[in-house]
Simulated scan of single mutants.
Amino acid sequence: MQLTHTLSDGLSICIELKRSARKNIILRPHSADTVRLNVPPYLGGRQLKDWLAGNEPLLRQALSRPPQPAPETMPGHIWYRGERHTLHTHKHAHICHQPPQILLPEALWSRQKSQLCRYLAERAAETLLPRLAQHAQAMRLNPAATALSHAKTFWGVCRSRTGIRLNWRLIGAPDFVADYVCIHELCHLPHPNHGPHFWEMVHRYTPHTRDAKKWLKQHGSELFVLG
Rank of each mutant, 00 (worst) to 15 (best):
27 L>C: 08
27 L>I: 09
27 L>T: 08
28 R>M: 08
29 P>M: 13
30 H>Y: 07
31 S>Y: 12
32 A>E: 15
32 A>Y: 09
33 D>K: 14
34 T>C: 08
34 T>R: 14
35 V>L: 05
37 L>M: 05
37 L>H: 04
39 V>E: 02
39 V>R: 05
39 V>P: 01
41 P>F: 09
43 L>G: 05
43 L>V: 11
43 L>C: 06
43 L>A: 07
43 L>K: 12
44 G>Y: 11
44 G>Q: 14
49 K>H: 14
49 K>S: 15
50 D>N: 14
50 D>P: 06
51 W>E: 11
51 W>M: 05
51 W>A: 04
52 L>W: 08
53 A>R: 15
53 A>F: 10
53 A>C: 10
54 G>P: 01
55 N>Q: 06
55 N>V: 00
56 E>Y: 07
56 E>F: 04
56 E>G: 03
58 L>S: 04
58 L>Q: 02
58 L>A: 03
58 L>C: 03
58 L>K: 01
59 L>W: 04
61 Q>N: 13
61 Q>F: 03
61 Q>Y: 10
63 L>Q: 13
64 S>R: 13
64 S>F: 02
65 R>I: 00
66 P>R: 04
67 P>R: 02
68 Q>H: 00
69 P>H: 01
69 P>N: 01
70 A>L: 01
71 P>R: 00
72 E>N: 07
73 T>A: 05
73 T>L: 03
73 T>G: 03
74 M>W: 12
75 P>H: 10
79 W>C: 00
81 R>D: 05
83 E>R: 12
83 E>I: 14
86 T>A: 14
86 T>M: 12
87 L>T: 07
88 H>Q: 13
89 T>M: 08
91 K>M: 09
92 H>P: 09
93 A>N: 15
95 I>F: 09
97 H>R: 13
98 Q>S: 09
98 Q>H: 10
99 P>W: 13
